[in-house]
Design a protein around this nucleic acid. Sequence first.
RNA 1: GUGGGUAUAGUUCAGUGGUGGAGCGCCAGAUUGUGGCUCUGGAUGUCGUGGGUUCGAACCCCACUACCCACCCCA
Length: 420
Amino acid sequence: MLTQAPKGTRDMLPADAHLWQMIEARMREVAALAGYREVRTPVFEHTELFLRGVGGTTDIVQKEMYTFLDKGERSITLKPEGTAGAVRAFIEGRLYADALPCKMYYLNAPIFRYENPQAGRLREHHQFGMECFGGSQPTVEAELISTLFSLLSGLGIKNLSVHINSIGCKECRPKYHAALKDFLGERISEMCPTCRERFERNPLRILDCKEEKCKAIVKDAPSMLDMLCEGCHDHFEGLKTLLSAQDIGYAIDPRIVRGLDYYTRTVFEIIMQTGREGLALCGGGRYDALVEELGGPATPAAGFGIGLERILIELKNAGTEPVAPTITDVYVAAITDDDRTEAYLLTQKLRTAGVKAECDHAGRSLKAQFKFAGKIAPFVAVVGGDERARGTVLLRNMNTREQQEIPLATAPEAIKQLIE
RNA sequence: GUGGGUAUAGUUCAGUGGUGGAGCGCCAGAUUGUGGCUCUGGAUGUCGUGGGUUCGAACCCCACUACCCACCCCA
């Protein structure tokens, strides 16, 4: 127990660090290109933020949150998604008072959901997300999707499909709910308990049900897309035009309604097509009412979240994982115990000169130092012995097995030149 | 929350009731100033945890925990 990470959590070990850092660097790059700057919000928030923001009827809020009372009797919840915190920060920081749109991204934010772990799903996972406040035009959603594409294709991840839908706004959605209830009528009693509950609280989600019986009943239900008000219709058409203009292929999927209540108009998902087929890599959409709902001024907004662990799965599937960089460039070996101080000093001088260098810390024999060096460094510098008398060090290329003597006095700079 | 599978060395796994094993990895030696190949030797296990059956349990039974997979839902 003591030496076992909690269920559904995972360590990032040093051997994998370069993968995460490479992905994170790409994310910062694409976000910056689109004018998004980083935001960092707390790992925990007041529970109420998620109740109001994410929605009290959602699975996330009803059964997946890590909620506890702190010592001051406040109800605290570990972030179960990234948007609510960003919106809170936007309001609390009075960012709405500046020129809008205000664009921000969060990176490597830990997200907590109490779920049963399986492939691509953990209790703690990490997300990159972009949020744009104050943009009402469909160019915002197009920009988000486009940025995602450039991120993922830059990582060599292909075979993705974009699914988009519009779930209307507070004008047209109630009308659709009414139409859906009319359509279902008495047949709601034949549906699963979950759907019967959703019928009252959030009828749209009935379309999302995976029960065969429910799917059959819902098959010919009216579509939200046919009942969009003029504004929502035009917005959706606008997004489709923009995506097509950019040659981004997409599928319209009336069944995606998303599990978070705050969405309005556009919702979208990017789905894996290989490996973990059907698993969502990324989800997002527009949430024009959320800022106001949480106490800010009415501000249109849109954003997405994408799971880093799932990107790593796709990276492995695509076979485009970068090779790990060498741990060090030069391993400084000491011939005898008397040479260890000099080896240590040369190591430090190399580091000062900007060369990744390492020496023995385990009291190994020269032979063992070489063996170890062979695993972590392309070059070995040998200090001591005859070379000490001659005032030189021996530099060995571990790949070509070539060796040369270098004057000790100028060794750090000379080695720096030689290994480049 | 539900269902299926799994748990033995650092790792991948074999071992079906009678003295715990192999490959790879790790450490050392052959090589007294040089890694990778070869050869030789070595270390490491409360056989997931706790009970039970038995003269005797890694093996059979029960419970628990974790991991993998799936449903639900989601990143």
